[in-house]
Nucleic acid binder design. Structure first.
Lengths: 336, 336
DNA sequence: CTGAAAGCGCTAACAG
DNA sequence: CTGTTAGCGCTTTCAG
């Protein structure tokens, strides 16, 4: 029982390979009886059409790539869920690539996509990504591509984002309303548009306050967890430490909790904490964590759906259907 | 600047296609000068070898599939990280498939792998998977396959697991030592070997106790979150409710916390809680959660490494290198 | 409705 | 060291 091919089926049925091929694709120009016979034999012989052969011929792979910084992050895990749901529905296969925030990896990965392995790409760029020639290059070769969450503004492709500016504004306002006088923002990157938006929202809220109000304190966290830990520890060890912290990255939140534990700082009495986070367990943290929660699953779905549309009208003018799905502020004890 | 092929490079350099092909593969039977010229032109013309063409010819895809129940679960997210690390190192691409605990999906997914799309498979079976003809079928066709975490015993393939029996035994002992008199086990499935092992370890620990000790209370949780919630709520609303709970699934832990909150049950005074979980935030839960933590990342790495070995000596006798990596009991406040 | 023939782009004998 | 030839397995004109 070895690999069975169309040719073998053809010989067994005294038909030509093309007839078999058409029958299997349910072509309307094949008689019902023939189809029936072919399908039957195919089942019996356990025929599975060769992927590379049809791919080579049809110049299609039925595969999309998801390029993201990490997977062990609630946001991306949930986004993958959304992507996978749509992909499965459309019979697409999903390749996963983790850049681990390395620009070089991102470049190398995208470069290889020119070989026909994937029909489309979903991309969330690294915190290092300052240039985007590699993305342009891929787009220039006609590869459908959708950016999600971490997008670049100057790329002509569909983008799925959340309302980072507004959420950050409201998050900051929430802390101000709670009585905070000095609010620190833990930023993810100095180059990401997403980070810039969150920074702007934060600044805007601060600017609206009296001049007596403390200025902005922005800490751009490093890639390594250890470095981030020290930055946060320094921040909170300072006698002039802030009385409010906004973590724009999920992982920073637990680090903040850890540092507070170590320094015996009481949340929320001594310092209020708010995080951009999709942690399922936010309600059960000690104290429960106030979060800005992104619609991760829906963003994944939206991105995949947008890509599927692009795949259908290949070589058509790329639509720029930028979608902004709103995040939600969940107020919990860490800020009350 | 359209898709450039080997033929075009050949014409431009007055060489044959095979020479180009060999030069690109750095074959030792090509003169350094020719190689040089070819490589140069390839770079200039931005040549990228067609994936399907070489795949068809070489009968290889440089791709592995990871088939798992979920991705939004710390264990699998971390396992993927480990898998991806090894894959990247070996130049392999990673396809992700989520079964969402559906046996039918698992079957359909594996069936398609006969088409040459993947060179190997990493599988963690669904809670529904009782038969494994579909796995045997794939193995029978020579597909390298490694089972991890949720394995089946009666399949002749490498298996990467953790010491479920022992961890469960020690978990139960830990609760007993803490004074629990009635310990309930929340099981994931009645068919998974993993669940069976955890159940056995639990039973063993109970059997070692005095006869006065309460018998086993095992609740096999349903697939749907809502059903699981009700099962747990029922369990804890009972006047005869247990004073210790072992959640063998990460998600159940937060559900238990939620129910306890709703019923105003104090953890750990009224009920101690222990969970098999890889949650990063376990230390920061309220109260901090005692966990059995699996070496998820390392299990992913081990599984991928084992698969890579199998890929190298294709068609060789399949090694059955069963590896058991130990889990760790992290004692925290939910049981003290 | 079916068949013959050509070829997707690359690689691997087999020659020289 | 390089070229010629012959496919990998499938799909798709183009004929009938």
């Amino acid at each position: 029982m070895e690999k069975v091919t169309i040719k073998q089926l053809a010989k067994e049925l005294n038909l030509s390979a093309s007839t078999i091929s058409r029958a299997l694709q349910d072509s309307h120009q094949i008689s019902p009886e023939t189809k029936q016979k072919v399908l039957e034999l195919a089942t019996v012989r356990n025929f599975v059409p060769n992927y590379h052969a049809s791919g080579l011929r049809k110049k299609t792979s039925k595969t999309i790539a998801v390029v993201i910084p990490e997977v062990a992050d609630s946001y991306f895990a949930q986004a993958i869920n959304g992507i996978e749901a749509v992909a499965q529905e459309h019979g697409l296969h999903v390749l996963i690539y983790l850049t681990h925030e390395s620009f070089l990896k991102e470049q190398a990965i995208l470069k290889e996509f020119q070989n026909g392995r994937v029909d489309g790409v979903l991309l969330s760029i690294t915190a290092e990504t300052a240039h985007n020639q590699h993305i342009r290059e891929l787009l220039g070769r006609g590869m459908p591509l959708v950016l999600f969450d971490r997008v670049c503004n100057d790329i002509a492709a569909p983008k799925i984002t959340t309302n980072d500016y507004e959420s950050s504004y409201w998050a900051t306002r929430h802390l101000i309303d709670g009585g905070c006088k000095q609010i620190a923002l833990l930023s993810a990157s100095s180059s990401l548009v997403m980070s810039a938006n969150r920074l702007e929202g934060y600044k805007k809220a601060l600017e609206e306050q009296e001049s007596s109000f403390q200025g902005a304190t922005v800490i751009t966290c490093a890639q390594s967890e250890a470095d981030t830990y020290f930055l946060i520890k320094n921040l909170l060890s300072d006698p002039q430490r802030p009385d409010g912290i906004i973590a724009t990255v999920e992982k920073q939140a637990t680090t903040v909790y850890q540092v507070c534990q170590e320094l015996h700082l009481n949340i929320p009495q001594e310092v209020k904490v708010l995080a951009f986070s999709n942690l399922q367990s936010a309600s059960f943290l000690n104290p429960s964590l106030t979060t800005i929660t992104q619609p991760a699953f829906d963003m994944g779905k939206a991105a995949a759906t947008s890509l599927c549309k692009a795949l259908k009208r290949k070589n058509q003018p790329i639509s720029h259907d930028t979608q902004v799905l709103p995040s939600v502020l969940h107020v919990r004890k860490s800020t009350c």
